[in-house]
Design a protein around this nucleic acid. Sequence first.
DNA 1: ATACATTGCGCAATGA
DNA 2: ATCATTGCGCAATGTA
Lengths: 162, 162
Amino acid sequence: MSRPSQPKHTTADHNGVSVIQSQSHAPSAPPAAVAGLQQVPQLIPAHPSSAGGKALPPSKMKKPPADKDSEEYRQRRERNNLAVKKSRMRSKQKALDTQQRVNELKEENERLEAKIKLLSKELSVLKDLFLEHAHNLADNVQPPAGAGGSSPAPNSTSANGQ
Amino acid sequence: MSRPSQPKHTTADHNGVSVIQSQSHAPSAPPAAVAGLQQVPQLIPAHPSSAGGKALPPSKMKKPPADKDSEEYRQRRERNNLAVKKSRMRSKQKALDTQQRVNELKEENERLEAKIKLLSKELSVLKDLFLEHAHNLADNVQPPAGAGGSSPAPNSTSANGQ
DNA sequence: ATACATTGCGCAATGA
DNA sequence: ATCATTGCGCAATGTA
């Protein structure tokens, strides 16, 4: 934020005239010949098409960097800048999404763990009941009607711990 | 990759002097006053140090952009470039970590869900047993010797995961 | 005000 | 050729 000048990429909008003076920084290089007059070698292919040329198959050419002043150049730059912006936007968005996904998964995890805890508890209760009952049967205890008062000592065999 | 000119940031290393004429453009701004001859107003504070000055409070100064040729300038750029690189590296690393976190959480989630499934199953079995038994009791049926023909005991009390 | 950290942006090389 | 990605440098801005 705080970028007080958004080009808004309407159409023919190109600011930022950049002149790259590649490593030509001799310690005695005077600050001259700057922007505006960039004279590139030009590199003309000099097609031998009129001589004995065939149909020039793979035209092994590295590609002339296209003059900075060229109309096509600026156009390409413009488009690329747009693409870059778009790509970066998506990248950032994706990062955000991923981060959010982490949060969601974390929540889900807690939910699941809580559920496990609950189920475990339920299970342990039921199991205890079962054991108790089994003991009753094993002891052949048939509680008729007022049998002494000997509670079968509720032995909680709980041993469940997550 | 394929960057045939890695500065290697030894010390006084600077290639690619780029002069960007950022958006400083009034719709009618003519292409004049380009780089190379950046004559900043300079704005000399004119220290009143010898007069009756205090400790010169906020000296309202926008900061002269420092000549591109300046030693200090290059030094600052160099350091910044380094910082930028570092920052971006961390940023990318963080993104990777986050992505991995997602994977871990997903795995954990599956683990938990599996456990829930298991516990649920166990619970349902036990409950069924209980219900059956309850019915037996309610019907006053005293299974003499193998009544229901169902000997439910497929339940091992172990439910350990991990 | 000094030094480092972040961030938006454009350029160029390269991938698809 | 077109668009998408990515590394890199610059400059503005944020933060300590």
